[in-house]
Design a protein around this nucleic acid. Structure first.
Length: 259
DNA sequence: CACGCCTCCTGTGCGC
DNA sequence: TGCGCACAGGAGGCGT
């Protein structure tokens, strides 16, 4: 799905909508998206991002949108969609073939009923991000490091490609169950680097991610690890391998990222 | 509580 | 060419 950099890019593309009013809403009637209709008649005051969630702020309502694995938000008008918001100025359409995304409306600022949001870890790109807290949590022995990163509790935002890239850069095996403080610090910095670089590139468009204007990002062009199974490691030349860690396909270098 | 397995759903790409 | 299957950028629920 869109990970933090892709959601951030989408958010920035939506900022011009601030101040316009939702004239009408259509949905595909499935329960996961039906709450999109609550935006009808309301004026958009702000668009925020928290982890991989987009937050549309209306005067008396917050509308959270998670894009799941295949969600895309564009100003195009495809025939098949999950939700469509007609603004006075333009039309915003959510497509999601796999249907893992969802829309949730709440009273402003009340995320207590949304587990994924209320239990979300700190924002890695905030100035206030506390590397030491992250290091402490990664130093404890527990589930494989990659499983913990994907769990969003120690840090908001990383998904599969960001984890694989950052773990490769930090020379950490995705299945390792605890990190030294030095390794954990390195991992935090590389996670942040990967995310910042991907935002600079307008997101990673290897699969179905597109920007709100339909354009593609270019972060896929600088991937060193993700999607390169069987190809030579750019550091040591060994063929990258792919295994299942935390139930997810994980690509890593058997020489640079030993267990 | 932490962990890990299963599930939701459809499109695509690969191997036979 | 066509078919069947594995797998795909996520996360919630539930059993252990």
């Amino acid at each position: 799905m869109p990970e933090l950099p892709e959601v951030e890019t989408i958010k920035r593309g939506l900022l011009p909508l601030i101040g316009s009013t939702v004239v009408s809403v259509s949905t595909d009637s499935s329960l996961r998206f039906i709450q999109a209709e609550k935006a009808k008649g309301r004026s958009l005051e702000d668009v925020k991002r928290r982890g991989k969630y987009l937050i549309f702020k209306f005067e008396d309502l917050d509308m959270m949108l998670h894009l799941g694995m295949t969600g895309a938000l564009t100003f195009a008008s495809p025939s098949r969609f999950r939700a469509q918001w007609v603004f006075s100025s333009t039309t915003l359409t959510l497509t999601d073939p796999r249907g893992f995304g969802r829309v949730i409306a709440t009273s402003p600022g009340d995320y207590s009923k949304i587990k994924g949001l209320s239990q979300l870890g700190p924002e890695p790109l905030d100035d206030a991000f506390d590397v030491k807290l992250f290091v402490d949590s990664m130093s404890k022995y527990g589930a494989p490091i990659k499983a913990r990163l994907l769990g969003q509790k120690s840090m908001a935002g990383p998904g599969n490609y960001i984890c694989d890239e950052a773990l490769w850069r930090a020379r950490i095996n995705p299945g390792v169950r605890s990190l030294t403080p030095a390794k954990a610090r390195k991992l935090a910095l590389e996670l942040i680097n990967v995310m910042e670089e991907a935002i600079q590139s307008g997101g990673m468009s290897m699969r179905n991610y597109v920007q709100v204007d339909g354009g593609t990002g270019s972060a896929q062009n600088s991937l060193q690890c993700y999607g390169r199974v069987g190809l030579p490691c750019h550091r040591c030349g060994a063929a990258l391998v792919k295994t299942r860690v935390a139930g997810r396909g994980s690509t890593w270098c058997p020489r640079c990222q030993k267990l």
